[in-house]
Write a protein that binds this DNA or RNA. Sequence first.
DNA 1: AAGTCGTGGAA
DNA 2: TTTCCAAGACT
Length: 288
Amino acid sequence: MNDLVAPMLAWYDAHARELPWRGEHATPWSVMVSEFMLQQTPVARVEPVHRLWMESWPTPAALAAAPSGEAVRAWGRLGYPRRALRLHAAATVIVEAYDGQVPSSYDDLVGLPGVGPYTAAAIAVFGYGERHAVLDTNVRRVLARLVVGDELPPVAVTSAERRRAEDLLPQDDAEAATWSIALMELGALVCTAAKPTCSGCPVADQCAWRAAGYPAYDGAPRKAQTWAGTDRQCRGRLMAVVRESPDPVPSSRLDRAWSDDAQRARCLTSLLTDGLLVETAVGYALPG
DNA sequence: AAGTCGTGGAA
DNA sequence: TTTCCAAGACT
């Protein structure tokens, strides 16, 4: 094993957060739910929603039996509500094709709706203890600094990154899983994007970026995401109105939620196309 | 392959 | 106040 593993495992043992989807009570399904929710959404906001979600739908079958609109409603304000739809769709596939059991192999998992390379690896590793490299934004950043000496990883995952992550993976399955979650936790708590606290890093003495004097990121500038006035904001407004209403919402109420007629109409259409809303005789509603 | 898709807390 | 962005997936 390389010289990074022991200090990383010891650090994780001492500093890991206790989260509902970790530990003995976690199930592959609770891990899967957490991974969907954590896609682009901070831990602090996921925790309470995950807790309620698991009470309502403790198994894939329970979720699959519910209307997809209930999943969207329970998703609340986590953002990117299509993830709720995809999780519901994935639960349906799990019931129909996997006898209600979350599959354990990466290849089966990555075939599920809403499950990409990261999420498939995370479920296989954290849900089942399979040995597989897990490349999320935290791991990528930590390895970029620690091994390569760059402040930030490339915009898109490269084959070099994947090979590097696989090369560093401990041979033992359980140890490899802890290694991966430790890298993620370090990236989330210590080796953060903006202001890393290297004084708290267990492998700072081996860090290539630190040794090089913290050279600044020199890759292509990341595009700043605009927000005000975008379709995303408009869609969010419309969804919020419908989500918080127990009854179908007449279009007159949606008119008040967004003033630009053309944009509102365009967004409404896209929400219907996405399956996030349906049109009923008395107004717009979450899908049944 | 570059754009799109939500949200709210922190800097 | 404005800006930035947090465990990605999909097209």
